[in-house]
């Protein structure tokens, strides 16, 4: 949805900050585990790396309850419409993290079956490199997203 540029002013500017802060503090992720990267995503959510520290341990099964989609793994041509549909069902504001080489560019599989980069079907905010990206990389990606939202760079 199009947003008007924020009018200058003390109250609204601060209100925006509060809004951004609120958006970053408890992002709900829609589970979109696809392949090997999904295992690392689950490992990130599990006890050892503990995504709960960033208020993100809840992986929602329903896209209607989520505001972040982590596309973790390779997106096949058959999965592409499904992915787009799930994305479209997420309420605004929403963000997408493309996790891993496959989701970002197709990775090592330059062939008929894969979508060569999930950015061909949904807009992506953060790309996390790696094959698979370790939990640390994913957390770095998430924190980068938080920073960007806080700074208003990719506000929705």
């Amino acid at each position: 949805m199009a947003h008007p540029t924020n009018p200058p002013g003390f109250l609204l500017a601060n209100l925006d900050k509060v809004r951004h802060w609120a958006q970053t503090r408890s992002m709900f992720t829609v589970t979109f585990g696809l392949a090997c990267c999904a295992i690392e995503m689950m490992a990130t959510g599990a006890g050892h790396y503990d995504l709960a520290r960033f208020g993100m341990e809840v992986f929602r099964a329903s896209p209607r309850q989520a505001d972040l989609m982590i596309v973790a793994g390779r997106v096949s041509q058959k999965m592409a419409p499904v992915l787009r549909q799930v994305y479209d069902q997420m309420p605004e504001p929403k963000w997408v993290i493309s996790m891993g080489a496959c989701a970002s560019t197709g990775g090592m599989f330059n062939n008929y079956a894969l979508v060569q980069g999930v950015d061909q079907i949904v807009p992506v905010d953060i790309y996390v490199p790696g094959c698979p990206p370790g939990p640390q990389s994913l957390m770095h990606g998430i924190l980068t997203l938080h920073d960007k939202i806080m700074s208003g760079e990719i506000a929705h």
Binding site: N111, Y112, A113, L114
Partner: peptide, 11 residues
């Protein structure tokens, strides 16, 4: 099935 078909046999 087939939602994760990666074409690895081709690659």
């Amino acid at each position: 099935i087939g939602y994760l078909h990666t074409g690895m046999e081709k690659t």
